[in-house]
Design a protein around this nucleic acid. Sequence first.
DNA 1: CTGCTCTGCTGCAAAAAATGCAGCGCCCGT
DNA 2: ACGGGCGCTGCATTTTTTGCAGCAGAGCAG
Lengths: 305, 305
Amino acid sequence: METMRHLLPLRYIDAVARAGSIRKAAEMLSITSTALNRRILAMEEELGVQIFERLPRGVRLSAAGEILLHHIRTQLSDMERVKSQIADLAGERRGHVSIACSQALLPRFLPEQIASYRKAHPAVTFSVYLRDRAAAEKALVDHSADLALVFEPVRLSDFQILLIVRQPVYAIMTANHPLAVQETVRLRDCLRFPIALPTTPYGVRELLETAVRRTSLKLQPVIESDNFEFLRYHALVEDIITFQIAIGLPGGNDSQDFVARRIAERDVPSGVLYVGQLQGRILPMASARFANQILDAFDKRFDCD
Amino acid sequence: METMRHLLPLRYIDAVARAGSIRKAAEMLSITSTALNRRILAMEEELGVQIFERLPRGVRLSAAGEILLHHIRTQLSDMERVKSQIADLAGERRGHVSIACSQALLPRFLPEQIASYRKAHPAVTFSVYLRDRAAAEKALVDHSADLALVFEPVRLSDFQILLIVRQPVYAIMTANHPLAVQETVRLRDCLRFPIALPTTPYGVRELLETAVRRTSLKLQPVIESDNFEFLRYHALVEDIITFQIAIGLPGGNDSQDFVARRIAERDVPSGVLYVGQLQGRILPMASARFANQILDAFDKRFDCD
DNA sequence: CTGCTCTGCTGCAAAAAATGCAGCGCCCGT
DNA sequence: ACGGGCGCTGCATTTTTTGCAGCAGAGCAG
């Protein structure tokens, strides 16, 4: 966060690596390129190895630099962890939790969880980043996120799974839609009506695509978007069907405006939501405690297996 | 080893913690107490917490300081690891291995192993510290040793076992001792003669004590020492019997001066030699490779189970 | 080819930080 | 009571870091 001056050189190297150029990094750090350049040079001198390859358009990490940078990033977040541990034993219970997650968590689940957590520990702050599956995992690796909550992740080796929750797919429609009378709906029935779908990188879309591949059905969305909110609003206005997973749904399964009807499991198998962290990393107190809270929350709210 | 100036503050804190006083630490670091004092103060300022409690006779780590120091020590040896990784990919294969071990390893086993390793990697340097079981484990914890080779350790929770080797106890005597004619000797026969023993903290002594406790025999050493070499030399000169474990014996079981005769397993069970490292720590390349070499060596030389 | 721009890098002077010296007040053991 | 150890501070000095201006080199547009 702030200061801790002895690892300023480390932050400088990190910044240069991110910016890809000393001058740009210097600007972000609001120092002169001279100073930054000389610190890099000094660091390379001390190590006896080039950290960056010099290109005509900037710099790039050398092999040694890659190793060093990895170490630097763990070191930086380790220091944060130590700081929150220290704050913790002073009874302050402060710290920071940063989360990378899929869209479905944003409207309801995370706000609720964070609010509940902050009620108990008001000094803890949060960063929440919207990231697709791949980007969320990358965020763990470069320590820009402590926790990732992702739907149907591409399982990366660095991803340490804390929890797996099955998430059935729901069809969202207006309350007076013909299908709204049923408890659960069949996929083929939905597809007789116009539908709105998330774009391909999203897990829900992938599940549906996989489901229809086994059948003679076809997905022919009249609306595509990468924004779930938009899809739901549009479904409302135009009276078409869209799809979402359980955790993204408001209140009960029904709100005043629209209803959510579970799709038969035999048509579309439940997707899987993963909560995870970086393999082998020791989380800061605050993040670890928040992760535990989430785990508890899932135990209570959903059937896990 | 030295340099890497950005973690000088960390080394300073470590030094003060070890010395227990700023002035003493300053002397060791060959700087003024003023400078050191101010660095500590600055560090505490940045952290917003006292790292050291001030006592009339010096300083002592505070609770926060304990946490911080633990982090500092990991950080310091992590940096060493990174440096050797970097050197490694430059093909230099340099680095440093520090070992805490029992006495029995010093005369033959470690010199041989280190020599053989250094033949392959001449740029790797070694520190070898003689430590009893407890001190060796402490050395792992405070990162003053990468590896520990100890006989009959008090199993600490931080100790991650890499290898276990059974080590039978041998009786050492002059070649013309009455018992020297037998292949293996009985403990009760040994105790009919004058004996020389290591002092109580040592594993061999403990094994023998345990062994006689089940019998009517008694250990009545005419010589006690904490130095195995002395015991052996003295046994030679005075023609008395002493005891040692397999790995400490020279060449074959016999040298020109004395012979080693295995004590019947039913009298004195084999002791156990442990090779271990700090739980959860990632060893520097050189140390990891050396540990592997040792593991291989044991596979070839002894029956392991 | 000629400008033009963007890069990393360097000489030199100014600014900032760390250091050492001397000395203060404190507390303990004798 | 007193000497010796301790942590800490004001001030002068030294060392380090920073910023400004300017360099050479490489891509790029014309």
